[in-house]
Simulated scan of single mutants.
Amino acid sequence: MRKYLFGTGLIGAITSGLSMLKALRTGEPFTWRAALAWLSWGITAALAIGAVVDIRRASTGHLAPEDSPVAGHEKKYLKQRLER
C-alpha cells in the first residue's frame, strides 16, 4: 500500500492542491485562470488515482484496460507481487 500512496503522481497532485487551497485562503480572487487550475488539478488527481487502480488490478492478476499505461505489463506486476 505504501508504494501506491507515495507515488510521484499522487504526491504531485496533493502538493499542487494544497498550494491552490492556500491561494484561496489568502483572499485571491477566483478568476477563470483559477478555475482552469482547479480543472487541471482534478484531471491530474484522477489520472494518478486511475494509474494506482490499474497497477493494483494488474498485480492481482486482472487485465488492465487497453488505454492504461500498464496494459501489456500485467505479468510483470503479478510476478513482482508473487515474489513478495
Rank of each mutant, 00 (worst) to 15 (best):
A45W: 01
K3R: 15
A64W: 06
G17H: 00
T31I: 00
T15H: 09
G72S: 05
Y77N: 07
A46I: 02
A45E: 01
I43S: 06
F30E: 10
D67W: 09
I14H: 08
W32C: 09
L5Y: 07
R56M: 01
T60C: 11
A46T: 05
P29L: 13
F6A: 09
A71Q: 07
S59L: 09
I55P: 02
S68V: 01
D54Y: 03
L21D: 01
G7P: 04
R25G: 12
F6Y: 13
K3D: 14
L82P: 14
G50F: 00
G27L: 08
L47G: 04
S68N: 01
F30S: 10
T8R: 14
H73Q: 15
G42T: 04
L10I: 03
L63W: 04
Y77S: 05
M1S: 05
I55S: 07
T31W: 03
Q80S: 13
T15F: 14
L10V: 01
V70P: 07
L47F: 06
G12D: 03
G50D: 04
D54R: 06
K79A: 14
V70A: 03
L21K: 11
L24W: 10
I55K: 14
W38D: 02
M20D: 08
T15M: 14
W41A: 11
S68D: 03
M20I: 03
S59K: 12
R57V: 00
I11R: 12
I49G: 02
T15E: 15
R81H: 15
Y4H: 12
L18P: 10
E66T: 02
T26I: 15
R84K: 15
L39Y: 00
I11F: 03
K79Q: 15
T31V: 00
K3H: 13
K76I: 13
H73E: 15
P29Q: 10
S19A: 15
L21G: 08
V53R: 03
R84L: 10
V52K: 00
T44Y: 06
T15R: 15
L10A: 01
K79S: 11
Q80E: 14
M1T: 09
S40N: 10
Y77W: 11
L63G: 05
L63V: 08
M1C: 05
R33H: 06
T15I: 14
I43V: 13
T8F: 11
L10C: 04
G12N: 06
G42A: 06
S19H: 12
I55C: 06
